[in-house]
């Protein structure tokens, strides 16, 4: 058995609907990811994939089950400790990149370091060079193309030398050509930095590029029931 970087067991998360009903969104009996491994998870819209990633990142607290990440049981940690683990161990690439508009590209990357390994301008610059933005380091997100913003987000995710990069529909906002380039960049950058990659996408073309891909419908037992009866609570977490 490889040394699991991420080991998820019996993970459950419910949300209350506006009517006060509890709806199970995530119910993953088991999910494992080895160090440096790259896994793609296919998830249709509303299948709970963002919630799944947020649970792993410690942004959300699980109702049941355990998440062991790099030897730390995330589900047993306080919120503050989960924040600390997330800052040091996880890089997150969001579908809409979530760059801070008032900050330049390099500042956005350094911001990623602020709560983790400590601000290192040289490394931030190197990361931006790596993603091909050495000539745009002082540009604000609004001055960058969508593809360039995506690359800043990738550089930021790798800023703290994370062991795990979570990517939520990272190519969702890109056209096919740029999506392919971006995906390749994420994968390469993760490999170079020794980070495992857990990517969720609804795009079969993306999944085809990975050696290991999973279907969230298989992983998440709540997804099937969820798909059969859509719940209003999805608005809350962009499932």
């Amino acid at each position: 058995m490889p040394p699991w970087l991420l080991d998820v067991t019996g993970l459950q998360k419910s949300f209350l609907s506006p009517e006060g009903e509890s709806t199970l969104i995530v119910d993953v009996p088991r999910f494992q990811l080895a160090e440096g491994e790259q896994v793609a998870v296919r998830g249709a819209s509303g299948s709970g994939k963002t919630t799944f990633l947020n649970l792993i990142a410690g942004i959300l607290q699980a109702d049941k089950g355990t998440i062991v990440l790099a030897g730390q049981t995330m589900t047993a940690l306080s919120e503050g400790d989960r924040d600390r683990v997330r800052a040091k161990t996880i890089g997150y690439v969001f579908q809409n990149f979530n760059l801070l508009q008032g900050y330049t590209a390099i500042e956005n990357v350094m911001l990623g370091m602020l709560f983790g390994s400590g601000v290192d301008r040289t490394r931030a610059q190197q990361l931006l060079e790596r993603v091909g933005l050495s000539h745009r380091i002082n540009y604000r997100p609004s001055q960058l193309s969508i593809g360039q913003q995506q690359r800043v987000a990738v550089a930021r995710a790798l800023a703290n030398r994370p062991k795990l990069v979570l990517a939520d529909e990272p190519t969702g906002n890109l056209d096919q050509r740029h999506a392919g380039e971006a995906l390749e960049l994420i994968r390469e950058a993760c490999r170079e930095n020794g980070a495992a990659l857990l990517l969720v996408s609804h795009d079969p073309a993306v999944l085809a590029l990975f050696d290991r891909s999973e279907d969230l419908a298989d992983l998440n037992q709540a997804a099937a029931a969820h798909a059969a009866a859509p719940v209003h609570t999805e608005n809350r977490t962009a499932l």
Binding site: D83, R84, R86, A87, L100, L111, L114, F115, G116, R156
Partner: peptide
């Protein structure tokens, strides 16, 4: 976003 980056 700051929280997602690890800010407490």
């Amino acid at each position: 976003i700051l929280r997602a980056l690890g800010a407490r």
